[in-house]
Amino acid sequence: MSARIVMKLTVVEAIATTPEVVRLTLVHPRRPQLPAWEPGAHVDLRLPDERVRQYSLCGDPADRSRYVLAIKREEAGRGGSAWAHAHLGAGASVPISHPRNHFLLTAGARHHVLIGGGIGVTPVAAMARHLAATGGNFTLHLCARSAAQAPLLEELRAVCGERLRCWFSAEGERLDPATLGPPEDGVHLYACGPQSLTAAVQALGWPADQVHVEHFAPLVVEGFVPEPFDVQIASTGATLHVPAETSLLEVLRQNGVNMPSSCEIGVCGACECGYREGDVIHRDVVLPQARRRDHLMPCVSRASGTLTLAL
């Protein structure tokens, strides 16, 4: 069970960690302690128009007094980061959900290989802090264009020391995931960053339970054409039609079935729903493979024929 209450937190510090990335420190205006979280967790930030954006917590998980986020200004993004850069100075109030985690460290692993590409370094930064503080064995690969454009670089140098390996493409150095070597028992890979990076890590052929990736962008499948399908509600037997241009989540909502929802692009995991039968076309980036056998994300995923939902 995970609580999803939205807190209006106060920005106590906003500093540029690179020219494009602002590092925000948030505290609760009344409570000395924020909800606990584990490395890899993210929060939802609610924009004034109620759209939601996910950001990883990149501070120290042991410090319950504050949350630290790093937000990159994405000119080509969906508008959330531009709003955050324009409005979230010291003293600003920002609606933030309780943390949620789809990107957990594996307890008992012998070695953790953390890979952060650009702003994707944020969740693995929290992992590195936790592992450094608790005596875990790890290496952090930080990929960026240059030192000046590497988010959180100074603090990660201090946290990781020799365990930090930087790859600056402007200096001609790029991480080739193939050089990480063959899989070994007890070694886990964690990657967050551009889809090209996470795809390259997943393509290494390591056992699925030793590779962990975090996505903050919807999955883009070129040429996907949504088709209409029918959905049956198991408890009532009611059948609903999902037109090609409408999401399953929206059809459920129109018929009085209110699922929790947040990002509605298949990345946050809020609307997860069980199903009994059906040929599901999974289009989210959050559900683990094993869970896809009987769960789907109705905000983006669809089906062909008739789908029976465990509702």
Binding site: M1, S2, R4
Partner: peptide, 10 residues
């Protein structure tokens, strides 16, 4: 159940 989910308390 929404309250339970929201609070994380049974």
């Amino acid at each position: 159940k929404y309250l339970e989910e929201l609070l994380g308390l049974p």
